[in-house]
Amino acid sequence: MARSSSQAGAPRRSSAARALRGLIILVVILVALGAGGWYWLAGELDRRIASALEAAGGGGATVLCENRQVFGFPFRLGLSCDRIGVEAPQNGVSASAGSLRTAAQIYDPSHIVAELAGPALVTAPNLPPLHLSWRLMQGSTSLWTQGLERFSLVVEAPVVSVREGEGAGAPLARSERLEAHARQNGAALDLALTDAAVTATLPGLPELPPFDLAADLTLDGAAGWLRTGVPGANVSQALRGEAGTIRLLSLSLPGGGGAQLSGPFRVSQSGEVSGDFRLAVEDPQSIAGLIGVLVPGTGGLATTIAGALGFAGRQEDGKTVVDVQVREGEARLGFIPLGRIPRI
């Protein structure tokens, strides 16, 4: 006797219902595992931050992260502080700033983005108390098993001022946009910097015309600086004994005039610079005057080079180009002595 259609369909509906229940159970298990994994990672992040803060205290520095919280469930993992600060009395350095927010996607926790609110108050040896402000400051990092692999920072409308109490006094410098980038390249460290529309008012000097800065260089053996910081927290000392290549060091004036320097270099243990450089200049006298103010001790050298460009330079793309040799701080244009570069 033939089975009715309702009798034939019942087993199929029963199988589909069991499959649906199994799928729902699987989804619930996966969600539970994902939630558990997020909370484990959040706890691990908080423990590591607490450990880092404690280690900094043991090294003589105090690092502040007020109202520390881990957030972002379920797809992001982030850390926020209402206020951050650093006190390093052994170096005479203290700094504080506003709220900090960092975040990483849960599927790519090695890539971290951050945003810091201003202003920042900084005290450091040989500097007046500083007040730093900005419209927006954002950074990003890439971390791997051996630590920090690359770092980027973008600051819109930065202003550096002398601090008066907790507020800003006379501004020293400002610009439209500052960008800084660093990355490991094998054993080397690649560095890049741009600062657009810089204006500076230095005490005792007239206000400088607006200018743009750009730098792109490699330090041959400095990859570890990203993981452990600049040795001794002193860039000048850390550069001694290092070598590298300047791909571009540029200074330009919006109204005309500019200089571009490139070439390999090395720094002796005593801070003397050596290298073979290509220097391209447009409107040499304007650039020489600006360099003499920005880099103390180089005014005479810059003026001498500007004067030598007229008879020793060659024309390339509207610029006057010379090849400058520097040996242990002594700069020469062929057999013509130009002067000394100050020690780093």
Rank of each mutant, 00 (worst) to 15 (best):
I341Y: 02
G271R: 00
A288D: 00
V326H: 06
P254Y: 09
A52K: 15
R278Q: 11
L121G: 10
L251Y: 11
A19P: 12
S175T: 08
A192F: 12
E149H: 02
G9I: 12
F151W: 06
V27Y: 09
P158H: 15
L239D: 01
A222I: 11
F277A: 07
E156R: 02
E282R: 15
L333M: 00
V273K: 05
P264K: 06
A192V: 02
P119L: 02
G58F: 11
G169L: 08
A117C: 14
I246M: 04
N234K: 08
A196W: 05
F151R: 12
L30V: 14
V122D: 13
V93M: 01
A52R: 13
Q260Y: 14
G292R: 08
L148E: 00
G36N: 05
I29M: 00
R340S: 02
V281H: 08
A238T: 01
W38V: 11
S236T: 07
G78L: 01
G300K: 04
A157E: 00
E330W: 15
G186C: 07
A97M: 00
E272C: 04
D216V: 10
G139K: 06
E149L: 10
A120F: 07
T62G: 15
G57E: 08
P296I: 09
L172T: 00
L290Y: 10
R343H: 09
Q315D: 00
E149K: 04
S80C: 15
L338P: 01
W38M: 09
L148C: 12
W40D: 04
Q90T: 12
L333T: 11
P231Y: 03
R48T: 06
L77E: 11
T62A: 07
P296L: 10
E44I: 06
V273I: 10
S4C: 07
G300E: 14
G34Q: 10
V155E: 03
A196M: 09
M137K: 13
A259R: 14
D317I: 07
E316R: 03
V154R: 05
A157S: 08
R3F: 11
A312I: 04
I336W: 13
V162T: 10
N185I: 09
S286M: 03
E176R: 04
G204A: 14
L294C: 02
G339L: 07
S96G: 10
E330D: 05
V63W: 09
T102P: 10
R332T: 11
R68F: 06
